[in-house]
């Protein structure tokens, strides 16, 4: 599936929920079920510091595609991280660079993107794209 197709799939999933409670419950479930980053990759240099919750993110290139793994100390952040990984992981660096990521707004989670002292989601998206730019430059 393309990045856009996965985004649309997530938007449809979230449309099934009737209220914000269910949306957040879904995010919490996603956070709980997300495969963890390998402990050896949970190092200081993989830490994306948000003011309130922290995110560790690791990326590697496999057969021309980037695979991301991540973890967070906050469960809602982790749910959002899980969504980002589902959308971007296993795509080529160029596809990731070009992605618009409109789904965040469509599923009503835009406020988590505000560049305030919140959760580091914005920094995480930046980091994911920066990694893609780095891999693209190498290839």
């Amino acid at each position: 599936m393309t990045i856009e197709e996965i985004e649309n799939e997530i938007v449809e999933e979230f449309e099934m929920f009737e209220d914000w409670m269910q949306r957040y419950e879904h995010l919490i479930d996603l956070g709980k079920s997300m495969p963890m980053i390998e402990e050896k990759n949970k190092t200081e240099d993989k830490l994306i510091k948000g003011c309130q919750s922290q995110v560790w993110m690791h990326s590697e290139l496999k057969d021309g595609k980037i695979v991301y793994t991540a973890d967070s100390d906050a469960i809602i952040t982790k749910g959002m991280v899980a969504l980002m990984i589902r959308v971007l992981s296993n795509h080529t660096p160029q596809e990731i660079i070009d992605s618009k990521l409109d789904f965040i707004e469509k599923i009503g989670l835009t406020k988590h993107l505000s560049p305030t002292r919140s959760n580091g989601l914005l920094s995480m998206i930046k980091q994911m794209k920066l990694d893609a730019i780095a891999y693209a430059a190498k290839s």
């Binding site: 914000w20 957040y24 309130q52 919750s53 100390d73 906050a74 469960i75 809602i76 952040t77 919140s118």
Partner: peptide, 13 residues
């Protein structure tokens, strides 16, 4: 066992 950020986010909702 819970992160303050998660609690604050849901309380705000």
């Amino acid at each position: 066992g819970l992160h303050p950020f998660d609690i604050g986010t849901l309380l705000d909702q």
